[in-house]
Design a protein around this nucleic acid. Structure first.
Lengths: 104, 104
DNA sequence: ACTTACCGTAAGTACAAACTTACCATTAGT
DNA sequence: ACTAATGGTAAGTTTGTACTTACGGTAAGT
């Protein structure tokens, strides 16, 4: 399973997107990530594991707390996947358009 | 449900990513999209609906054939979502780093 | 008009994965 | 040493969703 595949799978879940977005402004401990969420803390832990394996977040310990923060690797993987569609899709679109249109 | 949310949900499924990638090089009719896939054609139709509602693909008819092609809207939505993480996550990372490091 | 090719939708099933509770491990503080 | 705080994992349940088959509907060809 490629890097971007894991990332797309991970962000395919709404709850994981919410968790991911919580880390946008600053790193957070698990307790704080779980705050306000309607699911149990173990469920949050399981989501964090998926996000971590997709390299969308990274962890570092601080005493008894596990601090999670955004990891750029996963984001980069998704970006380049999407970019790989960009030009080729545009070319495909053009060639399709040129069948009905005529010049320029 | 926002535009990017639908797109992430759509590309969260491996089969839909395969279908999406099949359209990378050129637009295709449903029959050709289903070729080589191990699922039934109606299943493909259902996936196409999800991708279409996420604005990741668009459709245009050609006789009795329904031709699908990449739609840039969905890709753009995902890109800007990811980009919105870019700077802020970087800033968060920096501020975290500055606590342990000291200058520059 | 009839047949063939193409494809979407409905309804029901089966399975993956998102949950829960229960438990255990580690660290910090007293 | 004991307690409290933090959080990961195991096992089992439940639910969402990716499938299937069956059907209907439209367009093109004869």
């Amino acid at each position: 399973m490629s890097s971007s595949e894991k990332a797309f799978n991970a962000l395919g879940d709404p709850t994981r997107r919410i968790i991911f977005e919580k880390l946008r402004t600053s790193p957070l401990a698990v307790v704080h990530i779980a705050e306000g969420l309607s699911i149990s803390r173990p469920a949050v832990s399981q989501h964090l594991k998926v996000l971590r394996e997709a390299k969308l977040i990274s962890i570092h310990q601080q005493g008894t707390k596990n601090i999670y923060q955004i990891d750029q690797q996963g984001i980069l993987a998704m970006r380049s996947y999407l970019d790989s569609f960009w030009d080729t899709a545009l070319a495909a679109f053009k060639s399709a358009a040129e069948k009905t249109e005529d010049h320029e």
